[in-house]
Design a protein around this nucleic acid. Structure first.
Length: 645
RNA sequence: GCUGACGUAGCUCAAUUGGCAGAGCGGCUGAUUUGUAAUCAGCAGGUUGCGGGUUCGACUCCCGCCGUCAGCUCCA
């Protein structure tokens, strides 16, 4: 069979004709030395291939180099590093069972079935052996085998056999070997372990085989690797930076919140300074909601189960709800609410509604309680008692798009005030759903159109919507690039049905309103936790629990300092006097560590001149002496404009 | 919920093979009255998470509970 030449389109646009079956490596030496210099793999269209693999079709072609900015190259590197890890583990524990070992977003992991969980000392030991494997420069050797041989090769590896059984008939089964380690693996890999230069094992923890808690627990080792040492170090520094910003640590240091053992896990105590932040967030949002035509409502924290039976929560959400409370002399038990929607439905349903009343927007910042699994609790980010900035909008179908548009506008207004970038996930109809297709068509079109009108970029999550309606999730990015779940906007076709909501239209007929759930912050707990980490505790002046701390140099100046404090308070600002009998240096240091935006020193000179010596957090000029009125105005201005400094 | 590690003063952490529970910071008191990131001294502060057990003796070893932390598919 005289093979036709293949045509490969190179990144620079050139086309080359090659013999079918030529490997990327041979292609490099024959055709273009420069292009393939330091290549570790190649990419043909969307498929990454080993350098040694034969090229059997035409397409766009490029080499992957030792380039940490190339996600494809990193993918190969980390996959190979995972194999080096497994190689080392098998050298130390020859009987270790092996699970999966994929590259992941920031590194890789590998799951092992071992008698004893790995200790930190084990990880250090494994790293040493990995270094030996790297030094040995073992070649990654790919081989394609038939099913029978594969079964034979992995006869002692039950997890690999299980995976093998899932590979469809007719698919190629490949195995990779480096040194003594053989793995069922689709590849691709580096040419040699010698290219694994900068890696680090980060931690070990249990992980269920296939994430299924009914199946055996394996021991997972996480790690990461880079081509360049500099990038590994930067990555480790980022991890360190994230630890430095941990809201649980900062919450303690800055006295923002606590969780008390004898109150219960996942239940937040907002201390005065944390509570101040929550208060400021509420005030900011509520003022804005008034401008945007919302009505405030307040609803009970507990209710008869009748309510949640009607809403469907008892059927669909019971495992997250706290258990029933029996009430003496009453047939019905009570429940603490996990959400606010049912009560808002009741308010809507409490009287007749006209099409002229719509849209109706009920907002409530409310405490809800959810019995989250103990292992998922995490500081303020995953709690059992949560404060939702909730709202439910009831509108006519023709109003949905404008309402969504308005919410996106509000999201943008709020997030940009905090200097947060964000992105949208648009989740569409899942396979299992209620509601007619026409209703979904209309709803999804309205959401999409609102997003596009707002000129926002978004990712579609097909089938990711709830069974009762499509939704938009807003993810915001913090200062070190991590993503947080923030706002959510969710259409609901179910609740209006269950509560038999209606309005009387212009045609004098009863119609079903559309209902939209929405939260801007999400929960105050998570949002504040996110802000703590985003700002690393250094809140902008308008959010700082204490904006100004006054430092009188000696006792004689305390009265002057108190006067200024009262003047600042009268201007709506938050100020306090540090009257402790400590040196100025001591009190300045303390104020800096407490991340207070303004430290204002008052000495004899200032008292006589009517000035303050202002030391602004993070400012280039260490201190500026200014007249008191000017200082008050400067802080007030920053507060008023919500400056991000 | 499950697996593992951990839990000592308000905070951060010590305490040898099972042998008198300590330090720094913080707090209080006194002295100092301070000019830009820690003044000095003294004092108080503990049922070593809770409950059992082993032992002459338990922070230490064993069991149970509570809590914290990491993780629990980003599919060979």
């Amino acid at each position: 069979m005289s093979a036709e030449k293949l045509r490969l389109v190179l990144p620079d646009g050139r086309e080359v004709e090659v013999e079918p079956g030529i490997s990327a490596r041979d292609l490099a030496t024959k055709h273009d030395g420069g292009l393939a210099e330091n290549a570790i793999a190649a990419k043909l269209d969307e498929e990454i291939i080993d350098l040694g693999r034969p090229i059997v079709r035409s397409g766009r072609f490029r080499y992957l180099g030792e380039d940490d900015s190339d996600v494809d190259a990193l993918y190969v590197l980390r996959h190979s590093t995972a194999h080096v890890l497994a190689t080392a583990v098998r050298m130390i524990w020859p009987n270790a069972g092996i699970g999966f070992g994929p590259p992941i977003a920031e590194g890789f992991y590998y799951d092992f079935d071992v008698e004893q969980p790995f200790t930190p000392e084990d990880l250090a030991r494994i790293e040493e052996v990995m270094a030996e494997v790297v030094a040995a420069g073992e070649v990654f050797e790919r081989r394609e085998v038939d099913r029978a041989e594969a079964r034979d090769l992995f006869a002692d590896d039950p997890y690999k056999l299980e995976r093998l059984g899932e590979i469809p008939e007719g698919d190629t089964i490949s195995v990779y070997r480096d040194g003594k380690f053989l793995d069922l693996c689709r590849g691709p890999h580096l040419p040699s372990t010698a290219l694994v230069k900068n890696f680090k094992l980060l931690h070990a923890a249990g992980a269920y085989w296939r994430g299924d808690e009914r199946r055996p627990m394996l021991q997972r080792i996480y790690g990461t690797s880079f081509f360049e040492k500099k990038h590994l170090e930067e990555h480790l520094q980022r991890l360190e930076e994230a630890r430095r910003r941990d809201h649980r640590m900062l919450g303690k240091e800055l006295d923002l919140f606590s969780i008390q053992d004898d109150v219960g896990p996942g239940l937040i105590h907002w201390h005065p300074k944390g509570a101040m932040i929550q208060f400021l967030l509420r005030r900011f949002l509520e003022d804005e909601l008034l401008r945007r035509g919302y009505d405030f409502v307040y609803t009970p924290h507990i209710s008869r189960e009748t309510l949640f039976r009607r809403s469907g929560h008892l059927q669909a959400y019971a495992e997250v709800m706290f258990p029933s409370m029996e009430m003496e002399g009453e047939k019905e038990n009570y429940r603490v609410k996990p959400m606010n929607c049912p009560s808002h439905m009741e308010i809507y349903a409490s009287r007749q509604r006209s099409y002229r009343d719509l849209p109706i927007r009920y907002a409530e910042i409310a405490s809800d309680y959810r019995n989250e699994k103990s292992g998922t609790l995490h500081g303020m980010l995953r709690v059992r008692g949560l404060t939702m900035d909730d709202a439910h909008i009831f509108c006519r179908p023709d109003q949905v798009e404008d309402e969504i548009y308005g919410m996106l506008d509000l999201v943008d207004y709020v997030y940009s005030t905090f200097g947060l970038q964000y992105r949208l996930d648009f989740a569409t109809r899942p396979p299992k759903r209620i509601g007619a297709d026409e209703v979904w068509d209309e709803a999804e079109a309205a959401l999409r159109s609102a997003i596009e009108r707002r000129k926002l970029t978004y990712a579609v999550d097909p089938g990711g919507g709830a069974f009762y309606g499509p939704k938009i999730d807003v993810k915001f990015l913090d200062a070190i690039g991590r993503e947080w779940q923030g706002s959510t906007i969710q259409l609901d076709f179910v609740l209006p049905e269950r509560f038999d909501l209606s309005y009387v239209g212009a045609d004098n007929q009863r119609h079903r309103p559309v209902m939209i759930h929405r939260a801007i912050y999400g929960t105050l707990e998570r949002f504040v936790g996110g802000l703590i980490e985003h700002f690393a505790g250094t809140f902008p002046t308008w959010l700082a629990p204490v904006q100004v701390r006054l430092l009188p140099i000696s006792d004689e100046l305390t009265a002057t300092a108190r006067e200024l404090r009262d003047r600042l308070r009268a201007a709506g600002l938050r100020a306090e006097v540090d009257e402790r009998a400590e040196t100025l240096s001591y009190r300045i240091r303390d104020g800096e560590l407490q991340k207070i935006p303004y430290l204002a020193v008052i000495g004899q000179r200032e008292a006589e001149a009517g000035t303050v010596a202002v030391r602004k957090r993070g400012a280039e000029k260490k201190q500026v002496v200014m007249p008191v009125p000017e200082f008050v105005e400067q802080v007030a201005e920053e507060d008023r404009t919500r400056a991000l400094n």
